[in-house]
Simulated scan of single mutants.
Amino acid sequence: MGKLKVIKSGPMSTIQDLGRFGYRRYGIPQSGAMDKELMGFANQLVGNPDHYPVVEFAILGMKLEAVEKTSVSVVGADLKVNGDPIKDAGLVLNQGDVLETSAPAGVYGYLGIGGKIEAQEDFGSVSTYVMAGFGGIDGRQLKAGDFLCSDLDQMEIHTTSFSDREVTHPVKISIMKGPEWHVLRELPDTKIFQIDPSSNRMGIRLTGSQLENDSQEIVSSAVVPGTIQLPPNGQPIVLMNDCQTTGGYPRIGKVVEEDMGKLAQVRPGESIFFSLI
């Protein structure tokens, strides 16, 4: 089996899979990897199915030691082994090797481990939801001293064809109309917004522009990751993977699923605009 020991863990380093589904009626969020495309690449490199759990890390890098021989991959960040830069995204670590990742190129990077990572399963998923203590390791962020174990004995590194997303600035995010689209007095694609530093796995707050609207509170209604809420100040909030299941702000739109990972990777202070499809 593969086994890594966490030496250093940055903020929001958690175990994530594709998320938990079928429980929103009980108020349980979806959670799961913020960038499912990069999660899939990390798994493919170590020969795993795309849905296997990975380690998601944000803002800062991580440092880990191989306790046993372990196949690993790093996507969305650079890596070093025993202090030497490594060009390949996937490799086999020998016992005692130390792996370091850089800060992610965007917001989130992914560490894949050959085999299925052992983690706490709640409601059909091992995705970590810190606010309720679900999934991962005791439902919390990773910390120094934690062990990441997998069930794979045979170590293989695979090749997969992926390239960095072509992103221009401001970043174009495609959206669909929401149930309360009618409260808008102007089209949202006339504005450019910046990502607020307070954004997190629950939601991305947008600043810098305001949308003229006839905003009013609505009866608390269902929301999902990607829902665009519009508070009275006219500055939208895009709900993300750890979002609540209902909300009382008008739902003016929904980010298309294909652009959710791209949106998650836009760094604080960078700009986006909406494009209606």
Rank of each mutant, 00 (worst) to 15 (best):
Q265E: 11
I7N: 09
R205Q: 13
F134A: 07
F57K: 08
L211Y: 09
Q30I: 15
E186Q: 13
Q30V: 15
L91D: 00
R205A: 10
R201L: 06
D138N: 14
L18E: 13
Q141S: 14
G10K: 00
L142P: 08
F273Q: 01
L211R: 01
D138E: 14
K3A: 12
N241G: 02
K36G: 04
E257Q: 09
Q235C: 13
T160Y: 13
S174N: 14
D146A: 11
I195G: 02
G261P: 00
N213V: 04
S125C: 05
M1V: 14
E257T: 11
R267I: 08
M62S: 04
D35A: 07
I218R: 08
P85K: 11
K5G: 09
A58D: 01
G19S: 06
P236R: 08
S127E: 07
F162P: 09
K69E: 12
P232Q: 03
V238T: 03
K116D: 05
G135T: 05
E68N: 12
Q235H: 07
L152N: 12
G61K: 03
G261T: 05
I272L: 10
E180C: 03
S199E: 04
I28A: 10
Y23L: 11
I86Q: 11
G76E: 07
R185I: 02
Q210Y: 00
F21E: 08
I173Y: 06
Q120M: 14
N94E: 15
R267H: 00
T14W: 05
G106A: 05
K8D: 06
I175R: 02
E37G: 07
N82K: 07
G106M: 00
D153K: 15
Y52K: 10
K3M: 13
V224N: 09
A144G: 12
E217V: 09
Q229L: 15
V67N: 03
F193K: 06
G83H: 07
P11N: 13
P29M: 05
K5P: 03
G32W: 05
D164R: 15
P250W: 10
S73K: 00
V171S: 13
M12D: 13
D189L: 06
D138Q: 08
G135I: 04
C149P: 01
S275M: 14
L276K: 12
T227P: 03
F147E: 15
P179G: 04
D196P: 06
I192M: 13
R251N: 05
G22H: 13
Q216W: 10
C149K: 10
G136V: 06
P225M: 09
A105Y: 14
L79R: 07
G112V: 09
L111R: 08
L184E: 03
L64D: 04
V46A: 02
Y110W: 10
E37M: 14
V6F: 10
V46D: 00
G76N: 07
F274M: 01
M155N: 11
V183L: 03
D214W: 11
I173K: 01
